[in-house]
Design a protein around this nucleic acid. Structure first.
Lengths: 154, 154
DNA sequence: TCTCTGATGTTGCATATACAACTATGCACG
DNA sequence: CGTGCATAGTTGTATATGCAACATCAGAGA
């Protein structure tokens, strides 16, 4: 973190400010997410929504619980996020007997992803430039490892 | 992202799911933030709040605008986040004539950081283990570079 | 079969995040 | 001096995020 003009006053605070992984990861997350949000804004889409859409499209007809595990998000968050996508008509609930309600992309959802793909590509390029090859590839590797472990356990 | 059982149906979606930097960064951010939130919960503190507290303590008496630049967050977000810290008595507004209202840690804020430091250290250790040395150091390097550029321009 | 436990999904609450619009202020330039 | 423009900060609105509590359902055992 930028050095203050004054002399150090608080050891614990300066240590955390100077070393905390979470501070840095969260700052980078905001900076990178903003790149995608800017690019996707003309399509009325946010990066989190596009993430969710493509995850559903990629996985086929995943259950909410499966998406939670893959995306590492709380079931309540996912419940509300998917409700927004459903409201826009981009996804549908697959009606089957029982407790699970798998999710499925609609035609409109597919079309939206195709329309937004060029904007995504531009943001992706800017994000790689901002992060550099090292950070981009090592972050990807960590998450791929999480996903591999996930597949193993389930 | 975990491979679906079925055959690929949608090229754009599969491409984004398979390559998107934002998906991966956001997943990692949720996983890592959860580690810190878990560790800090006994202190009634979230990782974002601790980040903000230590940033203010480290920088001395920064203006909200300065914090926005360093933490890459919107001024409206910062306004509401600091209001919560103020409500808890962890920070104070420095009253000076003009429009700027610099922020300052209170004694209670200092004490809280000291109390939470051991929990932070534990979470930090888990985060480094989860991310691995490559991702942790490269992410840190990117953000340090952002901060260095920031200092240059201001 | 009946029960108990664990997994699933929703809702209430609080915080986190950012855009748009607004107000207020400071400054540069005529 | 003005005056206009950029910066700073707040508020309204919408989405994102997760914990706790709740309801439901599926499968494991007795």
């Amino acid at each position: 973190m930028p050095k203050p003009q004054r002399q150090t006053q608080h050891f614990a605070a300066d240590t955390i400010a100077g070393e905390c992984v979470a501070v840095r990861l969260r700052v980078l997350n905001r900076a990178v997410s903003a790149l995608y949000d800017d690019a996707l804004r003309p399509h009325g889409l946010r990066v989190g929504q596009l993430n969710l859409l493509v995850a559903i499209a990629h996985l086929g007809e995943p259950s909410p619980a499966q998406l939670c595990r893959v995306l590492r998000m709380d079931k309540s968050t996912l419940s509300r996020d998917t409700e927004i996508l459903r409201r826009h008509g981009w996804i549908d609930l697959v009606e089957i007997p029982g407790r699970t309600r798998p999710l499925k992309i609609t035609k409109a959802g597919h079309a939206l992803i195709d329309r937004a793909a060029p904007a995504w590509r531009q943001a992706q390029s800017k994000a790689r430039a901002l992060m550099g090859i090292d950070a981009a590839t090592s972050v990807a590797a960590v998450v791929e490892a999480l996903w591999a472990a996930e597949s193993q356990s389930s």
